[in-house]
């Protein structure tokens, strides 16, 4: 109920502010300058990240943000195929640090990659990603808009029900 009230009060302006930021955070042709990473590889990585985020009980927001970070990084830097998976978990880690209460630990993430990478590698890559994206991480995501529109819908239905009760 509190959530709904907050939505009534601020949903609209929040939506407008996020909408305004949307174009700034849109990845532009993430694969255009990638010599090794193909659309297929990206697809594979993302469909791997989905069960991973479910495994940790992360929010959809975190997942969407991770993919956004991944794509925006790909748009700036050529990545070798063999550390593409590392980039995937790094993006997920950064996204979780931004929006989750309890981000998964580096150790757990590395274990999921069959310990193919070291802690130091992950930390270095995190540093590079943050640097490349210039710490612009507050991206409006699909998850946000989805939630907003379903709230709008709920609200509208609530109002209808209210009117029906009045009549």
């Amino acid at each position: 109920a509190q959530e709904l009230q907050a939505f009534r009060d601020y949903g609209e302006s929040w939506y407008r502010s996020r909408k305004g930021l949307e174009s700034r955070f849109q990845p532009r042709e993430p694969l255009a300058r990638q010599p090794q990473v193909t659309a297929e590889a990206r697809c594979k990585l993302v469909s791997w990240l989905i069960p991973v985020h479910r495994h940790f009980g992360l929010s959809l927001e975190a997942l969407c943000l991770a993919v956004n970070i991944l794509d925006r990084f790909l748009a700036t830097t050529p990545v070798a195929a063999d550390c593409f998976q590392l980039l995937g978990v790094t993006a997920l880690l950064i996204a979780c640090k931004q929006v989750e209460v309890h981000p998964p630990s580096v150790k757990e993430l590395l274990a999921l990659c069959c310990d193919a990478f070291t802690r130091q590698q992950l930390r270095n890559l995190e540093c590079i990603v943050l640097h490349r994206l210039d710490f612009d991480l507050a991206a409006p995501t699909v998850s946000f808009f989805l939630e907003h529109f379903s709230q709008v819908r709920l609200e509208a239905r609530g109002a209808d029900a209210g009117e029906a009760a009045d009549a």
């Binding site: 791997w48 070798a80 270095n124």
Partner: peptide, 20 residues
């Protein structure tokens, strides 16, 4: 499944060095 698609582990270090 994923690790199969990662071909040469020994080059990871290299690519990372390149990053660095």
């Amino acid at each position: 499944r994923f690790s199969l698609s990662v071909p040469r582990t020994e080059t990871i270090e290299e690519s990372l060095t390149e990053f660095t």
